[in-house]
């Protein structure tokens, strides 16, 4: 990160190929991003599998957190989709935990932010998008398209409403993915800029006296980013639940 003279707030989002793998002319290298994705998976597994290994009636600390995570996502899913949404529970749980862990890990200095890579958030949101379409049609057939036709709309503005509904439906994956991406990107750039400002002032002779100001700001930003890390994971999972609810209950 901040390595001396040229402090570049964009550098932290750069990928580095740790194990170059090239197949069919495509680059499938194992990168720092790959590492942090697997790290998130490892930590989630540690929490959920190691945490629940005792199957204790009265949970310990780790099991308490594991159960809390389970209940949090289960309640979120059930409150938006009802009982029928249970089958998506592992999927929504994995999405939520993956994003949450990736977000929180990325707040540790010198780590990498997986969720600040637009391709990752796009893959997730597009997966949700196609899951909604495929499952919605498989379950409801043509009934699914009632989603675009709100009931009780006068016939002469119905085409306009349907057009708006279709556009809003197809823009879902965009807003869904960009929201998370942009939040993480902006947060990390802000942190980097404030952190770099501290270094700049420290190296600026007498200006070092006011270096604590941006430092305090950096700490405050870090606290805010911790909130954002959780909030964005929650928002992403919540929207996923709401979109899945459309597939389950397409009546507007």
């Amino acid at each position: 990160m901040a390595s001396g003279t040229a402090i570049n707030p964009i550098e932290q989002f750069e990928l580095s190929r740790w194990v170059p793998i090239h197949v069919f002319g495509k680059d499938f290298s194992f990168t720092n991003a790959s590492f942090y994705m697997l790290l998130s998976v490892a930590l989630i597994s540690l929490l959920m599998i190691v945490g629940s290994r005792h199957r204790a009636l009265v949970p310990g600390r780790l099991q308490g957190i594991a159960e809390m995570a389970h209940d949090f996502v289960a309640d979120m899913l059930e409150s938006t989709t009802g009982k029928e949404g249970r089958r998506f529970f592992p999927f929504v749980f994995c999405l939520f935990m993956f994003i949450l862990f990736a977000n929180v890990i990325s707040l540790v200095p010198y780590t990498f932010s997986v969720t600040a890579q637009i391709i990752i958030t796009v893959v997730m949101s597009v997966t949700v998008f196609f899951l909604v379409i495929i499952f919605g049609i498989a379950r409801n057939g043509a009934h699914f398209f009632k989603l675009f036709v709100p009931p009780g709309v006068p016939i002469y503005i119905l085409p306009l409403v349907v057009a708006i509904e279709v556009i809003s439906f197809f823009s879902r994956p965009v807003s869904h993915s960009v929201r998370l991406f942009a939040n993480m990107l902006a947060g990390h750039i802000t942190l980097q800029v404030f952190g770099a400002f501290v270094l700049l002032l420290l190296g600026g002779g007498v200006w070092a006296a006011i270096a604590p100001l941006p430092f305090v700001m950096t700490l405050a930003m870090l606290a805010l980013e911790l909130l954002v890390a959780f909030l964005q994971a929650y928002v992403f999972a919540m929207l996923t639940c709401m979109y899945l609810n459309d597939a389950l209950h397409p009546v507007h």
Partner: peptide
């Protein structure tokens, strides 16, 4: 690379969970 490793990571996570 990003897509491949994300799919691998998420598949592992999904299976374990």
């Amino acid at each position: 690379s990003q897509i491949l490793w994300f799919v691998i990571a998420f598949a592992i996570l999904y299976a374990l969970m």
